[in-house]
């Protein structure tokens, strides 16, 4: 096992551990109070309405329209519809960039399938299935690299020249785009030197079987180093915004689950009300964490027999 293989494994482990840790961090946060924002697609009312439009809504069976939610979400994930509608000049670059990413990841998946088939003794020149996996690797990979490169370059130029974006762009933002752009460009160059991705597939097969890998060319090594470096770095960045997209849309903006006697919700609320409060504002009366939420919320510091205001 060579140093590149070790680094690839290490990168994968770092990615899995820290990405999972990030997911877990948000997953285990306390249930928030309701903070939904309409339209909420699963309400199934195209005008953006909610169950609050009905009299005695709590007596009615709650209807959740999952199809309406998917109808909204799929174009949003695939085509970044919100940006298309509200910020078209940026969408022109960020859409090819993201589509390039999706396709490149798709290419990697087909490369992995090809590697598994290779391990099973089915090479592309002897197996229709393996040949299909190879063809799809090439199609997804090459189109992905091209679109990703176009998007990354476009975004770098836009961030450097658009007065709205310039003031909000850091050196790190540019480095991130440059880094991803470099992965796309070198990926494309790898394809030029290895049109069937045979070496890459062999390398991936070696990783899956923990066996020595094939000899890699210079461009392949550069592409691999750029990729595994980014893979390990990615969980620590705000580029993991797919996490936010899931939680902020599905668990915040669309979380209109009412409190109607759900035992789990009740037990959470009771636990939260017992949390100590340490806010220092004099009116809070938290006594430095000695009082719980239930105590401060049920204490009225201004309670007095009613009298005329002076």
């Amino acid at each position: 096992m060579d140093i590149l293989q070790l680094l690839t494994y290490a990168s994968g482990v770092i990615f899995v551990v820290f990405f999972a840790r990030k997911l877990l961090k948000y997953w285990t946060m306390p249930m928030h109070v309701r903070w939904e924002l309409y339209p909420v697609p699963h309400e199934g009312k195209e005008w953006g309405g909610s169950f609050y439009e009905d009299v005695d809504h709590w007596k009615k069976t709650r209807h959740v329209d999952h199809v309406a939610q998917y109808r909204f979400m799929v174009p949003e994930i695939l085509f970044i519809r919100a940006l298309y509608e509200d910020n078209r000049p940026l969408w022109r670059w960020t859409f090819p960039f993201h589509l390039g990413l999706y396709l490149s990841i798709g290419g990697l998946v087909f490369l992995a399938i090809g590697a598994l088939l290779q391990i099973a003794g089915r090479a592309p020149d002897a197996s229709g299935l393996a040949a299909l996996a190879q063809s799809l690797t090439i199609i997804f990979g090459v189109i992905g690299f091209a679109l990703g490169t176009i998007g990354a370059v476009g975004l770098i130029v836009k961030r450097l020249t658009d007065p709205m974006l310039k003031d909000y762009t850091s050196g790190l933002d540019l480095l991130n785009l440059f880094w991803l752009g470099a992965i796309f460009v070198t990926g494309f160059l790898v394809w030029l030197s290895d049109p069937g991705f045979a070496v890459s597939r062999g390398y991936l097969a070696s990783l899956l079987t923990f066996s020595p890998g094939p000899s890699l060319g210079g461009m392949q090594i550069i592409n691999l180093l750029l990729f595994i470096g980014f893979w390990a770095y990615f969980p620590f960045t705000h580029m993991t915004h797919m996490i936010s997209k899931y939680f902020m849309w599905d668990k915040v903006k669309w979380d209109d689950m009412p409190n109607r006697g759900d035992a789990g919700m009740d037990s959470k609320i009771k636990a939260y009300l017992s949390y100590p409060v340490s806010w220092s504002g004099a009116h809070i009366g938290a006594e430095g964490g000695k009082k719980s939420w239930a105590e401060v919320a049920t204490t009225n510091p201004w309670a007095q027999p009613q009298k005329e205001e002076k």
Binding site: K25, Y26, M29, D86, L165, I243, M248, V252, V277
Partner: peptide
């Protein structure tokens, strides 16, 4: 979590994930 259980999750996500695309401005 103790002092802001009510809004911790949406706040943390909003603080961490802005891409500064400025779509919100208009």
């Amino acid at each position: 979590k103790e002092n802001n259980w009510a809004f911790l999750q949406p706040l943390s996500l909003s603080l961490e994930y802005c891409a500064r695309c400025q779509t919100c401005a208009d």
